[in-house]
């Protein structure tokens, strides 16, 4: 008989797969971005099922809250001509036949490799699953979060400086890229017209 958490997991995983399919198929980039947000929240709930409250918080606040705003901004600022995806199944297969083949080969092989290795007896030896463990008490979850923080600072001490440096570099680099001085002469004809439409009229 399937238990409550297992059912929950199945529901969420179908939700995630549905979100991914929608992300790939919706006609507008903006829509793809908000389907991505939904997928990210679904993944966050799976993290919660793996008993990691703090990673849940990171996933929601950084991914679903922070990165997705960036993606939405980028989608809005660069919106131009949307890619017309083939509507019919046949046309879809015709257009993406080679990609589909590659993707199927990779997927099947990955599944076989991972599942066979996970199911082998060597892997099972001495392990038991903590995924979806609902017997954890509140104290234990407090204890886990606290110990994760302690571990992060004590045993993985370079992680936070590394991330901080990386994010600072990314921030400065992207600001530098975006606010770079540019002149209309450097632009392509399309953009020249867009930024300076009066010129076209004069011509």
């Amino acid at each position: 008989m399937i238990s409550f958490v297992e059912a929950l997991f199945l529901v969420i995983s179908f939700f995630i797969v549905f979100c991914i399919i929608m992300t790939l198929l919706v006609p507008k980039t903006m829509q793809a971005a908000y389907w991505l947000i939904l997928m990210l929240t679904g993944v966050a709930v799976l993290f919660l099922l793996a008993n990691s409250e703090i990673i849940f918080a990171f996933q929601i606040s950084i991914y679903a809250g922070g990165i997705s705003v960036l993606l939405l901004f980028a989608a809005l600022l660069t919106q131009h001509e949307e890619y017309e995806f083939p509507r019919s199944i046949l046309g879809f297969i015709k257009v993406t036949a080679s990609q589909l083949a590659i993707f199927l080969i990779i997927g099947i092989n990955l599944l076989i490799l991972i599942l066979t290795s996970v199911m082998s007896s060597d892997f099972r030896k001495g392990t038991s699953s903590q995924l979806g463990d609902t017997t954890l008490t509140v104290e234990e979850s407090f204890f886990m979060t606290e110990n994760f923080s302690v571990t992060l600072w004590r045993d993985f001490g370079m992680v936070i400086p590394f991330l901080a440096f990386l994010l600072l570099t990314a921030l400065l680099g992207s600001v530098k890229l975006v606010i770079r001085e540019w002149e209309i002469e450097d632009l392509s004809d399309v953009m020249k017209n867009r930024y300076n439409p009066t010129q076209e009229v004069q011509q």
Binding site: I54, A57, F58, I60, S61, A64, G65, V138, M144, T145
Partner: peptide
């Protein structure tokens, strides 16, 4: 009663 209390509020709010 979450261990991440205030962080949870911020996370949810950031949506």
């Amino acid at each position: 009663n979450f261990s991440i209390g205030i962080l949870y509020v911020f996370a949810v709010f950031s949506i």
